[in-house]
Write a protein that binds this DNA or RNA. Sequence first.
DNA 1: CGCAGGTTTGACTTCACTCAATCGGCGTGG
DNA 2: CCACGCCGATTGAGTGAAGTCAAACCTGCG
Lengths: 213, 213
Amino acid sequence: MHAQIVDSPPLGGLVEIAPGLTLPGVVMTFDANEEIYAEGQPADFVYRVITGAVRTTRLLSDGGRQIGAFYLPGDVFGMQCGERHRFSAEAVTLSEVALVRRSALERAAESDSVTARRLWSLTSHELEDIQDHMFLLGRKDAAARVGQFLLRLATRASSPIVELPMSRGDIADHLGLTLETVSRTMSQLARDRAIALPSARRVVLCDPMALAA
Amino acid sequence: MHAQIVDSPPLGGLVEIAPGLTLPGVVMTFDANEEIYAEGQPADFVYRVITGAVRTTRLLSDGGRQIGAFYLPGDVFGMQCGERHRFSAEAVTLSEVALVRRSALERAAESDSVTARRLWSLTSHELEDIQDHMFLLGRKDAAARVGQFLLRLATRASSPIVELPMSRGDIADHLGLTLETVSRTMSQLARDRAIALPSARRVVLCDPMALAA
DNA sequence: CGCAGGTTTGACTTCACTCAATCGGCGTGG
DNA sequence: CCACGCCGATTGAGTGAAGTCAAACCTGCG
């Protein structure tokens, strides 16, 4: 267990847990692949990525793994409605994460309808993201899935050059493919000049239109 | 356009739009396959199924169709966060649907934190349902998808005998399969004695364990 | 220098898709 | 009452995209 509280001892600091919402909390760092919380654990905290990247995962009956989402700096995660986490969360790379107590958040929402609205909106946007992702999984072929994934990252970074924090296996488990298929598809996209691959973890989007499919 | 307002003229009645939340609204009936609202339209109302069944759909670039979810009596749908609907909604069978104005709902939420919490909870549960569905689409094979779908319907009906309101094509567009594959898979499950098919639209779950996969 | 990790590529298999024919229930009309 | 037609469902044959198994390849690091 290498997680470190870097901000201040026990629970003395203030963190901006959502845009415009600052509450008492703490910042911790997690090593790559370190668990932040486990599926089934009580959901006592809500989290926000400061630096690095986080994935939420669920293990499948057949031994496989599904990655629900990747969270990048600024993203909020772990805000379940129920009492317990429905996924595990792990740091993809060395990451700083802000935590605030769920109870503090709920108290803030009860006393202020604007805050309540903002929290609802966070959940609602996450719902929309997942709906989009669902379509990807339901209907598209490997090239379209990988293409859309890269486009989304580039949009997020506001740059056609994307540094991938996650492995091929992570991408595969997110897109419902195998790591070999992800690798093959990216090689093919590079051959088609839709992207360039200066290195395995660095992607340049040359022809974004070709990726939209 | 065959939609009928059955409850009372323009907007004079009261409907229970969510468990324990009654607001001014109206009940309408829709014929099978009739559109309730279209993707892109302003989301001025929130809906609740009284009788029948509703599907939310989105058309894909390649001409295909994805069904986001089916809604059964008691379910709330159309509660987007944004100003516009992100899906179309259609009646699967002849259905009665209650409507209330979004603005009325939002006013209720602003003035009462318990109501706000309840609405957030609705969105949050829909998120959880979709997350489960995402896993299905991401990893499982045809038998597991169809099996889980039938299990969910049976759980919902609290009965091992399920009357399917939707066609094989609808199921296929929901599970990310083709209608032929859905049909073949159900035939195979029947051959394996996991289910019985007294008729195409009626399914009896003989061995629920075998469906869990 | 060699090892370890992730990545790429190759050969083969398999599952689901496509195209196409047939079946079956149900309502309509003779 | 039966024949017909329609629409959804089923079944079959052949194809193709992605999965599986396995080997080779970087690249950073001890």
